[in-house]
C-alpha cells in the first residue's frame, strides 16, 4: 500500500508537471522532462548491463565449449569500447563494421522478403481489379495513380528544351500534382493517427490523475468515495 501510494503521488505530480507546459516552457516541465529522460536512459543502461553480464559472465567461468563462443563477442565488445577514445577509436572499427554490416544485411533481406515482395504482390493485377467490380477498379486506379503520382511528385527537374518542358509539365507535372494530393492525404491520416494516440495517452494520464486524486482523498478521509 505504501509503495502504491508513493507511486500514485509521484505519478500524479509528474503528470501535472508535464501538463504545466500548457502555460509555456517552464522549469517544472523541464524537471519532469529531465526526470523522464534520465530515468529511461538509466534504466536502459542498467537493464543492458545486467542482461549482458548475467549472460556472459557465467559462460566465461565455465569450461564448456560455450566459453569460446562467448569469448569472441566479449573481445569485440571490449574493442568497441575504444570508440569512446579518439586516439584509440580505430580499434573499434572492426566491431562497428560487424555491427553495421550484419544489421544492414539482416534488415535488407527482411525488407525484401517480408515487406517489398509481399506488398508488391498484394497490389494485385488488372484481372483482380476487374473481378472486384467497381470497388476493384477504383482500388486499382487509386493504387496505380497514387503510386506513380507519389513517385513523380519528387521529380524536381525539367528538361532544358522548351518543347520537352511543355510535354513534361503536361504529363509528369500533372501526375506529380496528383501524387502530392495523395501524399497530403497520407500525411493527414498519419497525423490523425498520431494525434489520436497522443490524445489517448492524454486521456489516460488525466484519467490516472483523477483516479489518483480520488484515492489520495480517500486515503486522507476527505473523499466520500
Amino acid at each position: 500500500m505504501t509503495a502504491d501510494l508513493i507511486g500514485l503521488i509521484v505519478g500524479t505530480l509528474l503528470t501535472l508537471l508535464v501538463l504545466s507546459y500548457i502555460l509555456g516552457d517552464n522549469p517544472l516541465y523541464r524537471l519532469a522532462l529531465h526526470l523522464l529522460v534520465g530515468a529511461t536512459v538509466g534504466y536502459g543502461v542498467a537493464v543492458t548491463v545486467v542482461t549482458v553480464l548475467r549472460t556472459v559472465l557465467p559462460a566465461l567461468q565455465n569450461d564448456s565449449p560455450d566459453r569460446v563462443r562467448v569469448l569472441i563477442p566479449v573481445i569485440l565488445g571490449i574493442l568497441l569500447l575504444f570508440k569512446g577514445f579518439p586516439r584509440w577509436s580505430a580499434w573499434g572499427n572492426f566491431s562497428t563494421a560487424l555491427l553495421v554490416g550484419v544489421g544492414a544485411a539482416v534488415a535488407l533481406s527482411g525488407a525484401l522478403l517480408g515487406t517489398i515482395i509481399p506488398q508488391a504482390a498484394a497490389v494485385g493485377s488488372l484481372d483482380d481489379w476487374l473481378r472486384g467490380g467497381a470497388y476493384g477498379l477504383l482500388n486499382g486506379f487509386l493504387v496505380t495513380v497514387g503510386t506513380i503520382g507519389a513517385l513523380l511528385a519528387f521529380a524536381f527537374t525539367v528538361p532544358r528544351r522548351p518543347t520537352l518542358q511543355r510535354l513534361w509539365n503536361n504529363s509528369v507535372g500533372v501526375l506529380g500534382q496528383m501524387g502530392r494530393l495523395f501524399l497530403l492525404a497520407t500525411f493527414g491520416a498519419a497525423f490523425a493517427t498520431a494525434l489520436t494516440a497522443s490524445l489517448t495517452v492524454l486521456v489516460g494520464r488525466v484519467y490516472a490523475v483523477v483516479i489518483g486524486l480520488q484515492r489520495l482523498l480517500t486515503l486522507l478521509g476527505m473523499s466520500s468515495g
Binding site: V106, G110, A111, L113, G114, P118, A189, T200
Partner: peptide, 27 residues
C-alpha cells in the same frame, strides 16, 4: 511491427502473426 513481421516471415512464414498496435502504428 515491421521488423518483427519481416524477420518472422523470413524465418518461419508458416507461423501466424497477430498484432496489437497503437493508433499511430495502425496506418
Amino acid at each position: 511491427l515491421r521488423v518483427w513481421v519481416e524477420q518472422v516471415s523470413a524465418a518461419r512464414p508458416d507461423v501466424p502473426i497477430v498484432a496489437g498496435v497503437s493508433a499511430r502504428a495502425e496506418l
